[in-house]
Design a protein around this nucleic acid. Structure first.
Length: 871
RNA sequence: GGGCGUAUAACUCAGCGGUAGAGUGCUACCUUCACACGGUAGAAGUCCCAGGUUCGAAUCCUGGUACGCCCACCA
């Protein structure tokens, strides 16, 4: 048996074990198994980067669940994978090309794609290895990439079916255009950012020369594309002008003044310029009123020829300056106000978006949204924490059609072909050899790709082999649990629900657990620009993976964000080390004949420890099954530190060093229970200890690796009858009293003094008292212990005292007793107040009253002792 | 403009109807034969404010206040 080091060396442990688990197939699901299946899908990380702290949390929590379920004898299928991350990936590779002095247009579509695939291969390996370092117990034999050929087949299948059903359509519509990445975006990819700008008041002269009308705008450059000015139909200030024409400044056009109820009379001047080509509101109004649309800004965010010779080719923001200057020069700038507004920006590139009309593909989602709403309302899908339901309801009831086409190269290519000769559009699973209409073979595939989330939406079933009816699909769909971050509830969770219900006719998962967001020590969101990012890879190097996991788990109270701090990480590392050293101490004292096959011998301490483990295991199981990870971590922390290390091992030291094999077997069993209970949370340190201490002492037939051992809840040993559960807490109180008396009287803790105690039931613990509190002797006499040389403390059921002779500090003792008396009197007064209230006695549950009475009796007894000692 | 969340010890957070808790930090002491990534003892809280429900409220309700987040086309 290997000797254990003085401190837990996590670096070697965490590289050794994952490879062994994986090689032994511990994480491989078995579709032939007779066990009950339990399935999850890993939210696929983007191939664009390293694991960040959000991933660490989002993958640790389901790993706890997976390891628990595996131990509870479920056939766990947790499928991992990575996401191609359309825009993000393309932006990164394009940036690399730029550094090399080239770009994707020079390279050409095919070469560019090759380049991205090569980059992807490297990154995928990296991120997969980072997942392994984290300990994520996923089934690598089933790993997927969102652009794998069979996932592409699923995407094409959905696209073609949806098109045939009329759920997918193509058409010119106003979309949000990102000039930086040169693609359309969906509404979800738009972030509204507060920007300080101006509100310019512009005078538009009336064509008949009878004055002017003043409009207010934040985007003066768009005035070059105005096709009307709108006022509210009931705005008396302007009704007389409706129908008149104004002369649009800086152009030679005349445009009408129209009335529409969408105008807010109280904003600006109450007159709004209408630019149907460049504003979603104006676009809608233009359609309502039959106004022409004039595109003055192009896809490159530069002004078009339509903007006029003076402005064509200018960047939109340059043009803004020029338009303002020109209007001012013409005396038409009435006022410039500073103004703060929410500007639509790309979530990905940060660029200011341009609303533009263009030909795009859209998906109708109203029906699917209803189904998804229904599934949550009727409880088929449950959310933890539940408050996310409100957000879900709001978004899905106001959902708009989804713009799914992207003008990107990296992604699933849209399976649509246009005939170059007859112009017919064909949406097919495979490229048609010739146009079914005119037989021309000159078919051109749509160059666009699909929104990344289109393939993500199919993830829970596409990874199991859909559209084929595979055995995996039958067994593992729907998933039991989906653990993910709430910031992608719309992007991903809602869309998975909608597509699952549409294509599988069945929910994709029964339970969604939304994990928290990880923030920095001060509660700030981590971001590169703030420089407060804590890198999980570095944390794993410095504190160990187990410490990182334990910290995240212990801070994962549902519904609150996590402020990750160094001190918490240190605390978790210390905890792992504490466990390690307790195990090391046990191991040092075990002889080869001590095994888990021995029938252990229980004394009072063992009965108590057994009870503590049994209670804790029950509570931990309950907590984990309800996603109260922090509660499980807290319970186990105290079980290990307070109960096992501080109390039990101290009491068992005699047995441990000189006991019989049967007595030592009890200790071994307890350590074994603790390792099994902690393994889902801190797999590396527990496996390492298991190897060093337990693996050679297992019962015949038990798996040698902890990762394969069973969850210990319900083990017969934990319900062995016997023992007085109150004895150990009373022992602890008396022990603590002895130690305190030494401290209070300024006695060196190492000085051995004679002691007495009136609680005679504790006599069997005399040796433990003497060893731990370092007493010279300990008697359990009957009668009054008080004496001038004794320092006395009141404990439950009696008194405990040290014979200090000249060392006693009477003043300190008196002060202490006075303080205790005050406290007891106050507590007793509170209890009496309650118990003397007839309405309390009448209305409170009997159980409560009894508890209060017992407590009052105990306090009264103590108070009496204290008073007696004070004389 | 809507919606959600959070306010508890110096810090970070649990608890959420029946004697105020943890970790870290702080003070004093301890090189006790598993662990100084340790041990012992201790100090430390009008549980944001104001009302209400209740025998009883940090916990439930109402209204404030302060932060944080999400959604939304007011030019």
């Amino acid at each position: 048996m290997r000797e254990m080091d003085k401190a837990f060396d996590f670096k070697t442990a965490q590289t050794r074990w994952y490879a062994r688990w994986e090689a032994a197939g511990v994480f491989t699901a078995d579709r032939e198994s007779a066990k009950t299946p339990f399935s999850m899908s890993l939210p696929p990380p983007n191939i664009t980067g390293n694991l960040h702290m959000g991933h660490a949390l989002a993958y640790t929590l389901p790993d706890v669940v997976a390891r628990l379920k595996r131990a509870q004898s479920f056939d766990v299928c947790w499928v991992p994978g990575v996401d191609h991350a359309g825009i993000a990936t393309q932006v990164i590779v394009e940036r690399q090309l730029k550094e090399e002095g080239t770009d994707r247009h020079k390279l050409g579509r095919e070469k560019f794609l090759e380049r991205i695939w090569a980059w992807k291969a490297q990154n995928q390996d990296d991120i997969e290895n980072q997942l392994r370092r984290l300990g994520a117990s996923v089934d690598w034999t089933r790993k997927r990439f969102t652009m794998d050929p069979d996932l592409n087949r699923a995407v094409r299948k959905v696209f073609v079916e949806a098109y045939r059903q009329g759920r997918i359509y193509r058409g010119p519509r106003m979309i949000q255009w990102d000039p930086a990445s040169q693609t359309a975006l969906s509404d979800l990819e738009v972030k509204h950012v507060e920007r300080h700008g101006h509100l310019w008041h512009l005078n538009y002269p009336l064509a008949d020369g009878s004055g002017h009308i003043t409009v207010a705008t934040t985007r003066p450059e768009t005035m070059l594309g105005d096709t009307a000015v709108a006022v509210h139909p009931e705005d008396e200030r302007y009704t007389h002008l409706v129908g008149k024409l104004v002369k649009l400044p800086l152009t030679d056009r005349e445009i009408p003044i129209v009335a529409d109820a969408f105008v807010d009379r109280d904003f600006g001047t109450g007159c709004v310029k209408l630019t149907p080509a460049h504003d979603p509101n104006d676009h809608a109004a233009g359609l309502r009123l039959g106004l022409p649309s004039l595109t003055v800004i192009g896809f490159d965010a530069k002004m078009t020829r339509e903007a006029g010779a003076a402005y064509a080719g200018l960047d939109r923001f340059e043009c803004r300056k020029k338009v303002v200057a020109d209007l001012e020069a013409a005396g038409l700038l009435a006022k410039t106000q500073s103004h703060t507004s929410m500007v639509a920006c790309s979530d990905r590139t940060g660029a200011v978006l341009e609303p533009l009309v263009s030909e795009q593909w859209f998906m109708k989602v109203d029906e699917a949204a209803k189904a998804a709403l229904e599934a949550v309302r009727d409880g088929r899908i449950k959310f933890t924490p539940e408050h996310h339901v409100a957000v879900w309801e709001h978004w899905l009831t106001n959902i708009q059609d989804w713009c799914i086409s992207r003008q990107l190269v990296w992604g699933h290519r849209i399976p649509a072909w246009t005939c170059a000769s007859c112009g017919a559009l064909h949406v097919e699973l495979e490229a048609p050899p010739a146009c079914p209409g005119c037989s021309s073979d000159d078919l051109v595939q749509d160059p666009d790709t699909l929104d990344t989330w289109f393939s993500s939406a199919l993830w829970p079933f596409s990874i199991l082999g859909w559209p084929d009816e595979t055995a995996d699909l039958k067994r593992y769909y729907p998933n039991d649990v989906m653990c993910t971050s709430y910031d992608i509830i719309f992007f991903w969770v809602a869309r998975m629900a909608m597509s699952g219900l549409t294509w599988m006719k069945e929910i994709p998962f029964r339970q969604v657990y939304f994990n928290s967001l990880v923030r920095d020590e001060g509660g700030q969101k981590m971001s590169k620009s703030k420089g407060n990012v804590i890198d999980p890879l570095e944390v794993m190097d410095e504190f160990g993976t187990d410490a990182l996991r334990f910290t995240l788990i212990s801070m994962s109270a549902p519904g609150t964000d996590i402020a990750l701090s160094r001190t918490r990480l240190e605390g978790s590392r210390n905890f792992c080390n504490k466990l390690w050293n307790a195990a090391r101490f046990v191991q040092m004292n075990l002889t080869d004949d001590v095994t888990l096959a021995l029938d252990p011998e229980f004394g009072e301490a063992e009965h108590w420890m057994k009870g503590r483990i049994a209670e804790t295991l029950k509570a931990v199981t309950e907590a984990l099954e309800h996603f109260r990870f922090h509660e499980a971590a807290d319970l186990l922390y105290h079980l290990v530190w307070d109960d096992f290390c501080a109390t039990y091992i101290e009491l068992a030291k005699v047995n441990l060093t000189s006991g019989t094999p049967a007595q030592k077997a009890a200790i071994l069993h307890f350590l074994d229970f603790i390792l099994r209970a902690l393994h889902p949370l801190v797999p590396f340190v527990t496996e390492e200890i298991h190897e060093a201490v337990v693996a050679d002492r297992l019962k015949p037939g038990e798996p040698r690796m902890l990762a394969q051992r069973a969850w210990p809840l319900g083990d017969p040993l934990l319900s062995r009858p016997g023992g007085d559960a109150t004895l150990i807490p009373r022992f602890q109180e008396v022990l603590s009293a002895f130690l305190r008396l030494k401290a209070e009287n300024g006695v060196d803790p190492a000085k051995r003094v004679p002691a007495v105690c009136s609680v005679r039931e504790l006599a069997p613990f005399a040796e433990a008292f003497k060893a731990i509190a370092r007493l010279e002797s300990l008697e359990f006499p009957s009668g009054d212990l008080a004496s001038p040389t004794r320092a006395v403390a009141v404990v439950a059921g009696g008194t405990a005292a040290l014979d200090l002779a000249g060392l006693k500090d009477p003043a300190a003792e008196k002060a202490k007793l006075e303080k205790e008396k005050e406290k007891l009197e106050k507590e007793l007064a509170g209890l009496r107040g309650r118990l003397d209230n007839p309405r309390y006695l009448e209305k409170a549950p009997a159980e409560e009253v009894e508890k209060a009475q017992a407590l009052a009796a105990e306090k009264a007894a103590r108070l009496e002792q204290v008073r007696a000692l004070l004389g």
